[in-house]
Simulated assay, not measured.
Amino acid sequence: MTVQLYTAPSNASSRKAREWLINHNIPFKERNIIARPLTPDEVKRLLRLTENGFEDIISTRAKVFKQLHLNLDDISTSQLIQLVSKHLDLLKRPIMFDDKRLQVGYNNEEIRRFLPRSTRKLEMMKVWQQLAI
């Protein structure tokens, strides 16, 4: 299964995520979302993978969020989808996902969920062996 990686070239976390995927031989397709913006349908697909909706993918610290004076509670889903499609700086980065999992931002522990189950088991066995020594 190929991981989709949405990045921005100037984002350090995006570079870390790309490097981690390469180092762990995880097949991925990278997309610079600044050069190739997301469509409203692609934003909806991301939303379906979230646990908390827009709260999971919108950067409330982004300059554009503040400039637009947004309040996530006061705006409709369709309006937010259109805003995200027009202002991609609203999205946290990187965004990694496959058919079942979504990770927003780079977290060294959480990114491991993209490792194949067999690899995760082997890594856990190594940890337990080291603890037993």
Rank of each mutant, 00 (worst) to 15 (best):
M1G: 14
L5N: 01
L5H: 01
Y6C: 03
P9I: 04
S10K: 09
S10F: 05
N11W: 07
S14N: 11
S14C: 13
R15V: 01
R15I: 06
K16S: 03
R18F: 03
W20V: 03
N25T: 13
I26Y: 00
P27I: 12
F28L: 08
F28A: 08
K29P: 11
E30M: 10
R31Q: 07
N32G: 07
N32L: 10
N32Q: 02
N32P: 08
I33F: 07
I33D: 08
I33H: 04
I34T: 04
A35M: 02
R36Q: 14
P37H: 01
L38D: 03
T39P: 05
V43H: 05
K44I: 02
K44S: 02
R45G: 09
L46A: 06
L47N: 06
L47P: 13
L47W: 09
R48S: 13
R48P: 10
L49H: 07
T50R: 14
E51G: 02
E51K: 10
N52S: 05
I58P: 07
I58E: 07
S59F: 05
S59R: 13
R61Q: 13
R61E: 11
A62P: 12
K63S: 13
V64E: 11
F65D: 09
K66V: 04
Q67I: 10
H69P: 15
H69C: 15
L70F: 01
L70A: 03
L72Y: 00
L72K: 00
D73I: 06
D74Q: 14
D74E: 14
I75D: 13
I75H: 12
T77Y: 00
S78N: 12
S78F: 00
Q79H: 02
L80T: 01
Q82S: 15
Q82P: 10
V84H: 02
V84N: 03
V84C: 06
S85F: 00
S85W: 01
K86F: 03
H87M: 02
L88E: 08
L90G: 00
L90A: 00
R93V: 01
F97G: 12
F97N: 13
D98S: 05
D98E: 05
K100R: 14
K100E: 14
K100Q: 13
R101T: 03
L102G: 07
Q103C: 05
Q103T: 03
V104K: 02
Y106H: 05
E109A: 06
I111G: 00
R112G: 11
F114R: 12
F114T: 11
P116H: 10
P116A: 09
R117K: 12
R117M: 10
T119Q: 15
K121Q: 13
E123D: 15
M125P: 03
M125K: 07
M125N: 09
V127R: 06
W128R: 12
Q130A: 13
Q130I: 10
L131H: 10
A132P: 14
I133G: 14
